[in-house]
Amino acid sequence: MLLEVDGVTKIYKKGVKANDGISLSVGRGEVFGLLGPNGAGKTTLVSQILGLTVPTSGTIRIDGIDVVRKPSVARQSCSYQPQAGVPIDGLTPMQAIELSGRLHGGARSDVRARAKQLIGALALEEWEHKAITLSGGVMRLVSFCMAAVVPGRIVILDEPTNDIDPLRRKMLWQEVRKVADAGSAVLLVTHNVLEAERCVDRLAIIDGGRVVGSGTPAALKSDTADWLHLELVLEPGSSEPELPSFLRRPATAGRRMIGEVSGSALPEAIAWATTMRKRGVVEEFSIGPATLVDVYVRHVTANGSHD
């Protein structure tokens, strides 16, 4: 494996535990998702891999080299899109992408050609040569290009799709896949479970600084294979209805309730949800195949944490 994280723990001076025995590995050509609620310890892990934060214990290896001891190897190996984006005030997107590529060691002509290609692939031509304040989404796409123009052996993308319109989001996922196909290991930090389900090869769910579930999306969903996903949106102001016995692993977030229903209980579940809607308790409901959201919610709520 190209990136191997083994038993990484970080305890800050005041006793705050940012992560706790995290182990995971990412191979060449793989898109690996790091999912978890706010404050789960994802960004700390990224900072440790980049060599900016030193773990209290545990090892991080890139291509077999201990980067906790040699942080310069981490910087040489990684390209990084920070969550907040990269401030590029005064620069045009083209200038920023070119500079980033050359700072990562790329030759001028190669970098320019690749920058052009990325700008085209993400439909950013409109802003290519404009040194103006960019919208959040465009700035994030430019930050992605800055990480992908001369990709490291490991490409770390922290929430790359936030604020991005659905069309460009699709284009972005295609480019992420291309970066992996070209041989990089892509570590993708995200809150967006549904998107991750479609785009990652494997993933780890992190909560409270620990890995609470990991594997391929299909493997993680395996024990929900014969179950369906029920989602209810409660009417504003109405209280939570009494839950029927056929509803497995119910969870509530605001007005939204989700749970799992077995195939055999489907008619019963539809009848119950319809009655709830007629009574004005439920605004709308849907039933479909189980998704990674169910797995995510189960792991995170079992760990006693909420986003």
Binding site: L50, L52, R75, C78, P82, V86
Partner: peptide
């Protein structure tokens, strides 16, 4: 404050 420092710190320079 802007994140520029963190970004530059992660560069291979």
């Amino acid at each position: 404050l802007t994140g520029r420092f963190e970004y530059l710190s992660a560069l291979p320079i």
